[in-house]
Design a protein around this nucleic acid. Structure first.
Lengths: 252, 252
DNA sequence: AAGTGGTCTAGACCACGTC
DNA sequence: ACGTGGTCTAGACCACTTC
C-alpha cells in the first residue's frame, strides 16, 4: 500500500475530499469489502496476519489494528495459536447477543418454536420506507409464535426484502435462530440491531395466540436489523407476554 | 515496571494464581485505581502519555494501549494536540448515554423536573441484597416525577447507599442529571447500567401522578448502576407512561 | 516552535494450539 | 518443532492545538 499521506501541502495526486485518511482505515475498508462479498465463508480462516500484511503492503502492526477492530465488531474471531476466522452467527452466540429476553434477575432463556407461516407479498409504503426498498419491491412476511418453557409467550412478525432472501419462505420450518440461517444460506451477516420498546395492552390476537387476557400488559419490541454493508435487512415486531419475562440490557 | 513474565517454567517469585498477566493489564489496574481514588478531578488533564510511560517504566506503546482502553470505556477522554482528561459525566453526555427514552423514530428528549422528595431510612432486605449492603446499612430514597414537553410522563424511585452519598438528601432540588452530581459532588463515576424492562399496568399512583387511566400500559425500567470499581451504587425503578414514548437501544 | 495525541514501522519474544 | 495470534519495545513521522 502506497505510503501517501493523502493530504499534504504539496497537492497530492491520490485521494479526494476526506482530507486525511489513515492507512489502517483504508486497509479496514478493503478487508470489510472482501468479507462482505464473501471471499471467505463463515467459519473459514483468513490468511495469517503476517501474510495479509505482506499482501496489502503494510506492517504487521497496522494489519493487527484492522483485524482487532473487526474482531471487536464481532465480524472476525481471532484465536491465539489457531488463526483469524469469519465469525459465525451460531445459535448460541446470536441468542445471547440479540435475544435479550430473560427471567427477572438475569437467567437466560432459549425459546422453542410454535406455529409459523411465511408468504411473499408486495411491500407496503411504510415497509418500503423502513427497509429502504424501491417502489415495486416485494417482501417476505413471516409470522411465528415461540414458547418459553412450553408456554406461548412471544409473537413475532418478521419482514424481509424478498430480493435479499430469495426463496426463504419455502424453507419452513424455519430454524429457531434466523440470523444463523441468514448468514449460512444468504450470506447476510447481521452486525447490529436498532430496537424501540414500548408497553401495550394485549389485543384479540394476543389473547388468542398467547393465551393472555385482553388488556394484559405486553412488551412490544420494534427491531430493525442491519447487515455488514449497513443495509437494512430485517424489520421485526415482537410482542411478549410480559409476566415473568424481562428485556435485559447493559448500557455502557 | 519489572519485566517479569509472571508465569514461566522456572517457578517465578512474584504473582500468584492468575497464571499470566500482561503488562498492560497491570498498568491498567494501576491507572484505574488512581482514577477511582480521585488522583485527578473530572475534566482535569492526566500527565502526557510519554511521562506516564516513563513514570511507570513501560513503553509508550503499552501506555497508549491502556489509555485507549480507558477511553473506549468512557473513563478518559483523549484529544489530539491537547491531552488526556478524566471524562466528565456532563448533562448532555450522560443524557445520551444512559437516558434511552425517545419519540418513536428516534428523536431524543430532554425531560424536565417535576415534584421530588428525598429521605434517609434503613435499607430493606431486598435493597441490601441488590445494592450489596451490610445488615445495618441506610439508604437514601428519592422519589421524583419528570415531565416530557410539559406533561408528566416519568416516575422514578431512586435508592442510594447513604454511606456513598452522604447528605445528598439535603441537596434538593436535585439536578436533572443525577450522574453528573454523583461524579462532581461524591466522586462516583457511573460506568455501566444493567437494565431490565417489563410492561405493566398503571396503578393508582401512576393514575394520580402521571394522569393516566388505571390499567393503561406502563413501561417499567429496573436499573442497577455500577461505578468504576464495580460497586453497585444506585438502584432505580422508572415507570414511563408509554404512549408516544419508546425506549431506544442499539445492540451490537 | 513546542507539546500532545495519532499513525506506522520493524523486530523481538511469549503463549497457545497442532502436528 | 512450527505456525498462529498476543505482547512489548524503540523510534520515526504526522496532525492538531496552543503559544
Amino acid at each position: 500500500m502506497a505510503r501517501v499521506p493523502a493530504h499534504s501541502k504539496t497537492g497530492s495526486i491520490v485521494s479526494e475530499t476526506p482530507g486525511y485518511r489513515p492507512l489502517y482505515r483504508q486497509v479496514y475498508d478493503i478487508v470489510v469489502r472482501r468479507v462482505a462479498q464473501g471471499d471467505w465463508r463463515p467459519g473459514e480462516a483468513l490468511p495469517s496476519e503476517q501474510s495479509l500484511a505482506r499482501e496489502l503492503g503494510v506492517s504487521q502492526g497496522t494489519m493487527r489494528k484492522v483485524l482487532d477492530a473487526l474482531t471487536a465488531e464481532k465480524v472476525l474471531d481471532r484465536r491465539q495459536g489457531k488463526g483469524t476466522f469469519i465469525a459465525q452467527n451460531t445459535q448460541e452466540r446470536t441468542q445471547f447477543r440479540f435475544f435479550r429476553l430473560a427471567r427477572p434477575g438475569g437467567r437466560r432463556l432459549t425459546p422453542a418454536l410454535g406455529t409459523e407461516s411465511a408468504r411473499v407479498r408486495a411491500a407496503r409504503a411504510i415497509e418500503r420506507e423502513r427497509l429502504e426498498l424501491s417502489r415495486d419491491a416485494r417482501i417476505v412476511e413471516i409470522l411465528r409464535m415461540r414458547l418459553i418453557e412450553g408456554t406461548p409467550a412471544i409473537r413475532e412478525q418478521i419482514l424481509l426484502p424478498a430480493s435479499v432472501f430469495p426463496g426463504i419462505e419455502k424453507q419452513t420450518p424455519l430454524p429457531n435462530s434466523l440470523y444463523t440461517l441468514y448468514q449460512s444460506a444468504f450470506g447476510v451477516t447481521i452486525v447490529a440491531t436498532h430496537e424501540e420498546l414500548t408497553a401495550a395492552l394485549a389485543d384479540a390476537e394476543d389473547h388468542e395466540q398467547l393465551g393472555v387476557a385482553a388488556g394484559s400488559p405486553i412488551l412490544v419490541i420494534d427491531r430493525l436489523a442491519v447487515g455488514l454493508t449497513n443495509r437494512k435487512v430485517e424489520w421485526r415486531m415482537t410482542r411478549v407476554s410480559s409476566s415473568n419475562l424481562v428485556y435485559a440490557v447493559t448500557l455502557t
